Simulated assay, not measured.
Amino acid sequence: MSERIVVVGAALLDAGRLLAARRSAPPDLAGRWELPGGKVEPGETPERALVRELREELGVETRTLTRVPGEWPLKEPYVLHVWTARLHPASPAPEPLQDHDELRWLAPAELWTVPWLDQDVPAVRAVAALVGHGA
């Protein structure tokens, strides 16, 4: 069995809303929505990777809060771990800088109004349950 590579996803929360990011690349994922994030690099903690990825992808400064229970398989050998996170008070507003063409803050009632990537659906359900958004 090959070694698993952890991909960290952010359940970025603000005023009870969850940030969703629409993929612009690669073509087979374009137009679908995901929790922003990316791969943990060797020697990097998942929390540091998440802060770095959100800075690179969205131009924001964040702090990680808690890990969402569970892990979700992606394309081999990747596995998704999700953390809740918040913007730093002095952070600029998120912008789609890499791999995304639109961002949307979703209130609890709007959570399922976007077509999430199949592999993100169970993670979004877990986030919703954790923060009391229901599924």
Score class of each variant (00 low, 15 high):
Arg63Gln: 11
Glu47Asp: 12
Leu97Arg: 08
Trp72Ala: 08
Leu65Ser: 10
Trp83Pro: 08
Ala85Glu: 04
Thr66Met: 13
Leu58His: 04
Tyr78Asp: 14
Trp72Asp: 09
Pro77Met: 13
Thr45Trp: 00
Gln98Val: 15
Thr62Met: 05
Glu53Thr: 10
Leu50Ser: 00
Glu61Asp: 11
Gln98Ile: 13
Asp99Met: 07
Ala49His: 00
Arg67Leu: 09
Pro96Cys: 04
Glu76Cys: 12
Leu50Cys: 06
Pro46Arg: 04
Glu53Ser: 03
Gln98Phe: 11
Leu58Ile: 11
Arg55Gln: 09
Thr62Arg: 02
Leu74Glu: 09
Thr64Tyr: 00
Asp101Phe: 01
Lys75Thr: 15
Asp99Pro: 05
Asp99Val: 10
Thr62Leu: 04
Arg86Asn: 09
Val60Leu: 04
Glu57Ala: 07
Thr84Asp: 13
Val60Met: 04
Trp83Tyr: 13
Pro73Phe: 05
Arg48His: 15
Glu102Asp: 12
Glu61Pro: 01
Leu54Asp: 03
Pro77Asp: 15
Arg55Gly: 08
Pro94Thr: 05
Leu65Phe: 12
Arg55Glu: 09
Tyr78Trp: 10
Glu61Val: 02
Leu58Lys: 03
Glu56Met: 11
Thr84Trp: 08
Arg63Pro: 08
Tyr78Lys: 05
Gly59Pro: 07
Trp72Cys: 09
Pro69Cys: 08
Glu61Leu: 06
Leu50Gly: 01
Tyr78Ala: 15
Val68His: 01
Asp99Gly: 14
Gly70Met: 07
Glu95Asn: 10
Ala85Pro: 04
His88Lys: 07
Leu50Ile: 14
Gly59Ala: 14
Pro46Asn: 07
Pro73Trp: 05
Glu53Ile: 12
Thr45Cys: 07
Glu76Ile: 14
Ala90Trp: 01
Glu56Arg: 02
Leu87Gln: 05
Tyr78Thr: 10
His81Asn: 13
Ser91Gly: 00
Leu54Met: 14
Val68Trp: 02
Arg63Ala: 12
Gly70Ile: 11
Leu87Asn: 02
Glu71Trp: 02
Pro46Glu: 09
Leu54Arg: 02
His88Tyr: 03
Thr64Met: 06
Glu53Cys: 06
His88Asp: 00
Leu80Tyr: 00
Val60Glu: 03
Glu57Leu: 09
Pro89Lys: 05
Pro89Gln: 04
Trp83Ala: 14
Leu58Glu: 01
Pro77Trp: 04
Thr84Asn: 13
Asp101Ile: 08
Thr62Trp: 02
Arg55Ser: 07
Lys75His: 13
Asp101Lys: 09
